[in-house]
Simulated assay, not measured.
Amino acid sequence: MELLNYIVWNPDMFAFRIGSWGVRWYSLCWLIGLALGYLLMKKLYEEQGITWQERVQGRKKVKVNVFDPLFIYIFVSVLVGARLGHCIFYEPDRFLTSVQGFVEMLLPIHFLQGGGWKYTGYEGLASHGGVIGMLVAIWLYCRNTKVPLWTVLDNMGICCGVTAGFIRVGNLMNSEIIGKVTDVPWAFIFEQVDKAPRHPGQLYEALAYFAFLIVVLFIYRRRGPASVGTGFYFGLCLTVIFTFRFLIEYTKDIQVAFEAGLPLDMGQILSIPFILIGVACMVGGPWMKRLGAK
């Protein structure tokens, strides 16, 4: 293989530095994705007239903003879910078999063999765990604010592509979740990993998620705000994103050793339930609409 034919990839992990302190591209991409998702969700709430609710406090009726708490619910739950998902699904032997491992799962530190510890940040976040955490948070949010559950889920399905796309861009900047060795002309040589040309699986996913965002926004504009609350957009999101995730795994290298002995890797195994739930939501629109009214 002629290495000059491929894209050599070796970016600095830090987007910028101020003295000894710096912001990593990965963290920056997470924040950009969440911020854009927040702004898009806010616009959808306003279009659908659900940002404010009238409530009785004492003897007065007051308007309460029910959108603002959503960001906190989502931000915390996605990070916690993604972290726990990685530790439980991908590295249970490391994090669930010792007290030190359990502490490392919860805190962004690593214990040194000779004693002591160092700050590492959270090294390892799993998208499937993030989705599970997000769903739990949305249920709690709807329970507390009385916003219809299927309305929130559909709006989340419309917005999620932008956040998911930027997270994968962060993975690309980190040279992680790399693809298998290949000779396609657009292969990347991840110098922080090895000198072999590989599929840029992170880039495939990022482009797919951004494309999904454009398509789902087009559908929403054509169908209008009244189409939200049936479960269709939430189902479409799960079905399309996790079907693509299932297929793209064939171009990725395994992330942990035990996957080598499995007929499907962990990403594919975890994607199957989400695909089935997505299809069920898309075909069960009238039933979802009735549930959404409660």
Rank of each mutant, 00 (worst) to 15 (best):
G129K: 04
M282F: 15
I269D: 09
V131S: 13
K294A: 12
I248D: 15
G179M: 11
L4A: 01
L217Y: 10
D183E: 14
A211Q: 00
G201M: 08
L236K: 04
G37F: 10
I275E: 10
Y119A: 14
N155T: 04
K43G: 10
V103Y: 02
I241L: 15
C159K: 03
C160Q: 00
G114V: 04
L238F: 15
F111D: 11
I272A: 11
F75M: 03
G115D: 08
G58R: 00
Y26D: 06
F218H: 12
Q57S: 10
M1I: 05
L107F: 15
G229K: 06
L70H: 09
V152E: 06
F242V: 06
V80L: 15
L39W: 11
Y45H: 13
Y73P: 05
Y233T: 07
M134H: 01
G261Q: 14
V78R: 04
V131Y: 02
Q53T: 13
D253R: 11
L106M: 14
F67T: 06
V240C: 09
A164D: 02
P197A: 14
L36F: 07
K61F: 04
F244D: 08
V256I: 14
L28V: 01
Y250F: 15
V152P: 00
T151Y: 05
A257M: 02
I167T: 04
G33K: 02
I132W: 02
F166G: 01
